[in-house]
């Protein structure tokens, strides 16, 4: 456990060294928060203030919490592992007495911790100052949101790690990354809440893809959309995806190590 904490601490400190990047990222997330918020409120206004089961203040919260969560779950771009595979530096990872998946996950949780204290706080605070945000009615929604966010980070990490592992076969994974980013943006609930889609499409996305579990689930839990039972199901869906993806990471990692060559002399 000490090792996991130390690695998470390293992940946290690694990102804390890039202060200007953090400020720039938080600023960008905030600017786009305003854009998304005005658009979604306009949509809700045409629908009589309520859209797909969300009230106006819930939609505001949906947008701003989403803008904060973007960096926490890091739904976009992460190529650290792929870069190390391409250069052969991954050899150093394999020479440590740790499972690489566990080691990278611990580091990623540290990164998420740093993002939570910086990139999450800024857009959320600005959103709360400028708009009427929805506050959860039951206290339980707060710890449920925290737990759901943690699992969302694991889900997102699982997909990112798998995408990066393809570098063992492909070396250049820009195509895979582009595909993942495109899918993640549209299918995770970032561009619009998935509840806007027909029921069957929602079913396919929640059960058939990990994207909503990596992003929309914690937001729906915080804005208390649907019954408690419905929200418990969201958390359950996330846990299933997290377990499935980490298992897949372990499996693919083992295949990659057995079958493939570490690059470079």
């Amino acid at each position: 456990m000490g090792t996991a904490w130390a690695l998470a601490g390293a992940g946290f400190r690694r990102y804390s060294t890039y202060r200007q990047a953090t400020v720039a990222g938080a600023f960008t997330n905030t600017v786009f928060g305003f854009l998304r918020c005005y658009v979604i409120l306009a949509v809700a206004a045409t629908a009589g203030g309520m859209a797909a089961g969300y009230r106006g203040s819930q939609l505001v919260t949906y947008v701003w919490i989403g803008q904060g969560l973007l960096a926490v779950v890091q739904i976009w771009g992460w190529t650290d592992l792929a870069d190390r595979i391409r250069t052969g530096d991954v050899q150093s990872d394999l020479l440590r007495p740790l499972h690489p998946v566990a080691s990278y996950l611990a580091t990623d949780l540290g990164r998420a911790g740093h993002a939570a204290l910086t990139r999450f706080v800024v857009p959320t605070a600005v959103g709360a100052l400028c708009f009427d945000m929805y506050a959860p009615h039951t206290l339980l929604s707060y710890p449920a949101f925290l737990a759901s966010t943690l699992v969302a980070v694991v889900v997102s990490f699982g997909v990112r790690y798998l995408v990066n592992l393809t570098a063992f076969w492909l070396l250049d994974i820009r195509g895979v990354i582009t595909l993942w980013q495109l899918g993640a943006g549209v299918l995770s609930g970032l561009y619009f809440p998935l509840a806007f889609l027909p029921g069957w499409a929602q079913g396919v996305l929640w059960l058939g893809t990990p994207f909503p579990a990596a992003f929309q689930a914690p937001i729906d839990i915080l804005v208390e959309r649907g019954s408690v039972g419905h929200r418990s199901l969201l958390l359950f869906d996330q846990l299933c995806w997290a377990a499935l993806l980490i298992g897949a990471c372990m499996l693919v990692q083992r295949r990659a190590e057995r079958k493939l060559v570490v690059q470079g002399g």
């Binding site: 690694r14 060294t17 530096d89 150093s92």
Partner: peptide, 15 residues
């Protein structure tokens, strides 16, 4: 075992 590579690093680049 310990391994030292002249051409790659096992240290944490940013720390």
């Amino acid at each position: 075992i310990g391994v030292v590579f002249g051409q790659r690093s096992q240290l944490w680049w940013d720390l």
